[in-house]
Nucleic acid binder design. Structure first.
Lengths: 328, 328
DNA sequence: AATCAAATTGTAATCGATTACATTTATTTC
DNA sequence: GAAATAAATGTAATCGATTACAATTTGATT
């Protein structure tokens, strides 16, 4: 691959002039410009990002931190991020941390090393202390999961309210025994959704029963299956379930489909409105977050930060999507 | 962020010595080593990848090209790629092309610009001509989708055989009317799977009927729904369906669940064994590819190429996973 | 103590771009 | 046509690392 000197030589000009042609910046006479452009074409030249970035100390690369791409919840957000980034001539780097601190570290270093200009973290398992340290010196945005009293700008939805509405919907459709399938409460979203669940129950003077609150080890389907099996073993079975993630809810549906034999139906509400949720049998009632928008706005926030501007936190609206799983 | 000169100054040595400490290379006396290490710690120094890469012209970054992360088929492969890459001190960059040539271009340029050391393409929509050009000068591996007579090393499964076995399974379980839901035949995997489908039909002297072969516009669920609806409108309805992707198969299941009212059941086989395929109702019979292994081996191939070694193409074994959707 | 080899450390070129400043060339003005 | 100004181009420093080669220090040997 040719470099800028070779182009300069070929075109009979200095490297500065070539650089000027490349960056459409200061004045270059049409004659020399076309000479240079010709040389570029002939030698099939592409400017080296390394040289350029080293000099400019910018990479026009954004990191997107997520625990795993296996959760379909992230896909639409990522589309939003990608579209917005590309529109501003940035590219994104999807970084799966697998919830492993070592990997996280690698990606943090990429930012410190100027290999990336900023970070959007969607990883609830991220080491917040280290992320906060990073955010002191580099642009960072939290998307979806956030810190209530932290300094890092975030964009999210009102999880507590959404959960409250979901559970209220279950209660209003005649369920007095509503169980909760949730994950580890070290995650803020889990605490908030549980709070919403409890608020709804209290409002209708229903008792909060610990044995109807099941904590899973992760968000994957199989944990949903397992959770539901445990709930079905209870002496007094719930008649409805609110799961804090569609993947868990779909696992729960599966468990119900397997074990139910003419027994009473169980209503289910999930959270996220992943594309799969309309493919299940029955289709899943769920909370829809404006995921694409969230991705777009998170990116806009990050780009603002990179420019050095201040940004405000954003809380987006959600929506309860009623489908068959609560129409039993 | 401190740079190497500041460390050198602080430690009272030259930048060369600092670099030596950093790279554990040639001899450095224990005394100076510890002085330097102390300075590094004090100033919280991290070497700049940009400077390093520019000099070494390597980035230890691998690109993974895929059309979209929305298809769960890719997730396990990516895990394999990631684990193998990290074990060799490489990182991966997930690149969604969205089947858009412009994006593809951006990523190709990253390789040319030494921002990445090699590419694993899992993108069936990739511009093969440009990829071939890239592969003339840079390490490239094809994973899953490949070119039969091309020069780029690939790893894949025998799609034709897998499809043949899938359809044979349908026929042997009593179905004489087997439809095919496939995608655009510009993709090799689609052509191969269709060939397998036809081979099985021929072997059992069943007629190949064009009206039972439905071509979708994409692999997303909704295309599966639509395809199945069309097939159900046929005067003579198929009793079984082979879909070339689990996502399509699950969409088809959905369509059947919606339209069927005491009518005859329809058997379905998918392809890929995505984690969702065991969550559907009924669970989905499908072809399982060793996705994790495929990712690992693809990465090993790429790393070999980066070292300048030659590599052989690999065809991995698949497996027919029989579940409820063909036990009706 | 002088000599020499080995170990350690430093100097300076290099990777490929950008850009402030200097210089040359073209254009305008009187 | 000379002077003043504007436009075009070139020179060389710079970003932050690595490394060949040179220079120095250390230590062993006689």
């Amino acid at each position: 691959m040719a470099n800028i000197q070779q182009i300069a030589k070929r075109a009979g000009v200095s490297v500065a002039t070539v650089s000027r042609v490349l960056n459409h910046a200061t004045s270059v006479s049409p004659k020399t410009r076309s000479k240079v452009e010709e040389a570029i074409k002939e030698l099939n030249y592409e400017p080296s990002m390394l040289g350029r970035n080293l000099r400019n100390s910018e990479s026009r690369l954004l990191l997107v931190l997520l625990p795993t791409i296996a959760n379909p919840f992230y896909t639409e957000i990522i589309n939003g991020i990608q579209d917005t980034a590309i529109a501003s001539d940035y590219n994104i780097l999807l970084c799966e941390t697998d919830s492993k601190p070592e990997r996280e570290n690698i990606y943090f270093n990429m930012v410190k090393n100027k290999l990336a200009d900023g970070v959007i973290s969607m990883d609830p398992t991220v080491n917040m202390q280290r992320l906060n340290e990073l955010a002191e010196h580099y642009p960072v945005i939290l998307c979806s999961e956030y810190e209530e009293k932290g300094d890092i700008p975030y964009i999210t939805v009102d999880s507590e309210l959404a959960a409250y509405q979901a559970v209220k919907h279950l209660i209003k459709s005649g369920n007095e025994k509503v169980a909760l399938i949730t994950s580890d409460e070290k995650f803020l979203y889990a605490r908030l959704r549980r709070a919403g669940y409890e608020r709804a129950l209290k409002e209708f003077h229903l008792q909060i029963r610990d044995e109807w609150i099941y904590h899973t080890k992760g968000l994957e389907f199989q944990y949903g299956v397992h959770a539901m099996r445990m709930l079905l073993k209870e002496e007094e079975k719930p008649t409805a379930v609110f799961a804090i993630s569609d993947t868990l809810a779909i696992g729960a549906l599966k468990a119900i489909n397997m074990e139910r034999e003419g027994s009473d139906p169980i209503a289910i509400v999930g959270f996220d409105n992943i594309s799969f949720s309309s493919m299940t049998n029955p289709t899943l009632t769920t909370i829809s977050q404006p995921m694409y928008t969230m991705g777009c706005q998170a990116t806009e926030m990050l780009l603002s930060r990179i420019k050095g501007e201040k940004v405000e936190n954003i809380v987006l609206d959600h929506e309860l999507i009623i489908r068959e799983s609560t129409m039993v």
